[in-house]
């Protein structure tokens, strides 16, 4: 957050540069008061809807709660996380399946978010250019995002059916493959299939946010660049990309958050298969299918911590890497 703090400090001094010290501090104080006033409704609402469920989940993660009788939950400390008993390790952290799920999720998130960012940028740049029929293209691009996930996942699983799916039919038609592939069944392909559908589904999210950023850029830099005769590719990397970076970063964070919590797509497409099981699928299996609310809550809390860690890493890493503003 360092850059933003500096910016705003900059702004505040700028705004008050013509005023006296006394007026400045008064102004700042009234602005801060207004800020809290504006924040209050949002915060109250968030605490209301998120506070209780989050607190409850974290509390349950330290108990032996079971879905069939939640009121009898007993505090058991960290046993759901890790416990040593009769020469064997128990708990989420000692479960190979959990680590398999963590690894699957990370792999999925990195690959799909990277692909979505690149494709989203390309689509946004195309939509940013003006050409006839642009409005229709814009609507068309949003369609994948507009179809409910449970439906699009089923739709793709039908299209990827090894025997009568249209995907194999097309690929065989143009000669890319000679025998039908078992997209969602083969252990090697299942993850690819999930990523493929996810990229298809969420690229519009990225491109729309990037497009908004592109649309809000000041035009004078471009004019200057055009006058100087700089190659468009260089303009993109040296002017556009740094300028849209803050918006891009936020778009990527939210995609990353969603990707790390991916659930319904994998659940519908490949069910509980180990090859694609994500952290959320694991947590849900424990919470709902196995009714172990305590253990599942521990998995959820760990998922929360993992996601948090990824975001913190991403933000530190991201700032160090491209802070060229």
């Amino acid at each position: 957050m360092a850059t933003t703090e500096a910016e705003v400090a900059d702004l505040a001094t700028g705004a008050a540069s013509t005023a006296t010290q006394v007026e400045k501090s008064q102004l700042t104080r009234s602005r801060v008061r207004a800020a809290w006033l504006f924040l209050a409704p949002m915060l109250i609402l968030l605490v209301m809807v998120a506070g209780w469920p989050l607190f409850r989940t974290i509390w349950f993660s330290f108990t032996d709660a079971n879905l069939s009788d939640l009121s009898n939950a007993k505090y058991i400390g960290f046993e759901n996380y890790l416990a040593y008993n009769d020469g064997e390790w128990y708990g989420v952290l000692a479960d190979g399946e959990w680590w398999n799920a963590v690894w699957n999720t990370l792999k999925f998130s990195v690959i799909s978010v990277t692909l979505e960012t690149i494709l989203g940028l390309v689509v946004a740049l195309v939509l940013n250019a003006s050409f006839p029929g642009r409005s229709l293209v814009r609507a068309a691009v949003l369609i994948p995002w507009a179809i409910p996930t449970i439906v699009s996942a089923k739709m793709w699983s039908w299209m990827m059916h090894d025997q009568f799916g249209i995907l194999n039919h097309m690929l065989m038609g143009i000669g890319l493959i000679s025998t039908p592939l078992a997209w969602t069944a083969s252990p090697d392909l299942a993850m690819t299939a999930v990523i493929m559908v996810d990229v298809w589904k969420t690229t519009p999210f990225m491109s729309l946010l990037i497009l908004a950023a592109l649309q809000m850029l000041p035009t004078d830099c471009y004019e200057a660049a055009r006058v100087d005769g700089i190659h468009p590719v260089r303009v993109f990397f040296q002017v556009t990309l740094p300028l849209i970076k803050p918006a891009l970063m936020v778009a990527v964070i939210f995609r990353l958050l969603d990707a790390l919590r991916i659930f319904d797509l994998i659940y519908v497409l490949t069910s509980n298969s180990k090859d694609t099981m994500s952290m959320s699928v694991y947590a849900r299996q424990q919470l709902v299918d196995f009714q172990s609310v305590g253990y599942g809550s521990a998995a959820s809390t760990l998922l929360f911590l993992t996601v948090g860690l990824c975001v913190v890493l991403y933000m530190t890493f991201g700032r160090v890497r491209f802070d060229g503003r």
């Binding site: 059916h161 090894d162 039908p180 078992a182 997209w183 069944a185 083969s186 299942a190 298969s273």
Partner: peptide
Amino acid sequence: PEGVLNYTEEE
């Protein structure tokens, strides 16, 4: 077929 590993009733 290998795909049977992801078949439910309807597939």
